[in-house]
């Protein structure tokens, strides 16, 4: 068994003539918190989408959790996502007509079957025990992001992906969300890959890689955590 949960070799992704990701070799050991930094257009979101099975690479190898993502069919990828990955979006992407708890149950539905008690428990863990029946429109940005986190962790994923999770939040909410993620990671022991352009947010991770123009330019290890 490889000690790495993610292993890429010469991973590329191009859209027509534009090469979003130049050949990239990356290893992520299990349980690591990896921050990915770069300007917009540097290929960091592309990397995250590839690793999360949302997109397919155009070349190279990609192993996530021992699964060769290049070999999976469309439905196979969907099954991989539901069992293995939790995703937190910058735009939250909550279903507007469902309440907070129902949004969490949606993830349960695709994974196996809805379980209301468990969903409630998950929302209580992110501190939203009092807003179960509110729709996304009635929640603040920070609260919405916490619903999103509850939804991402409800199926006990091995890999948690954050695509600028704090991009739309003010400073206070950002700290709250990051604290929460750290706490949850302590309990659930999932691997985190977080895309951000904020130095302070990146500093929460164990390791930061910098991408520029689709290439890995710098890597730094945080020792303070």
């Amino acid at each position: 068994m490889s000690p790495y949960i993610i292993e890429t070799g010469g991973l590329t992704r191009s859209y027509g003539d534009i090469c979003a990701l130049k050949p990239l070799d990356l290893q992520v050991p299990e349980g690591e918190w990896l921050s990915v930094m770069g300007h917009s257009g540097s290929g960091k979101s592309t990397l995250m989408n590839l690793v999360g099975g949302l997109d397919r690479p155009t070349g190279g190898t990609l192993q996530v959790g021992g699964e060769n993502l290049l070999a999976l069919t469309e439905d196979g990828l969907a099954r991989f996502r539901r069992n293995f990955v939790g995703i937190i979006f910058q735009q939250h992407h909550l279903v507007p007509y469902l309440t907070a708890i129902e949004n969490v149950m949606m993830a349960q539905y695709f994974h196996s079957m809805p379980d209301e008690a468990e969903a409630r428990h998950a929302l209580e863990r992110v501190g939203l025990g009092h807003r179960l029946k509110n729709r996304p429109g009635e929640l603040s940005g920070g609260e919405q992001q916490r619903v999103c986190i509850a939804r991402a962790i409800i199926n006990s994923p091995k890999l948690l992906l954050g695509d600028e999770p704090t991009g739309n939040l003010d400073h206070k909410s950002t700290i709250m969300v990051m604290e929460l993620l750290k706490e949850l990671r302590g309990e659930e022991r999932f691997t985190v890959i977080m895309v951000t352009h904020n130095q302070d947010v990146a500093a929460w991770g164990d390791r930061t890689i910098h991408l520029d123009d689709g290439m890995l330019v710098r890597e730094e290890r945080m020792n303070c955590q």
Binding site: E74, A78, R82, F110, H111
Partner: peptide, 16 residues
């Protein structure tokens, strides 16, 4: 479209 994309992203197969 966004809703559909989300459902797919959190693990729904096309059929589901």
């Amino acid at each position: 479209g966004k809703e559909i994309g989300l459902m797919k992203a959190i693990g729904g197969t096309r059929r589901e």
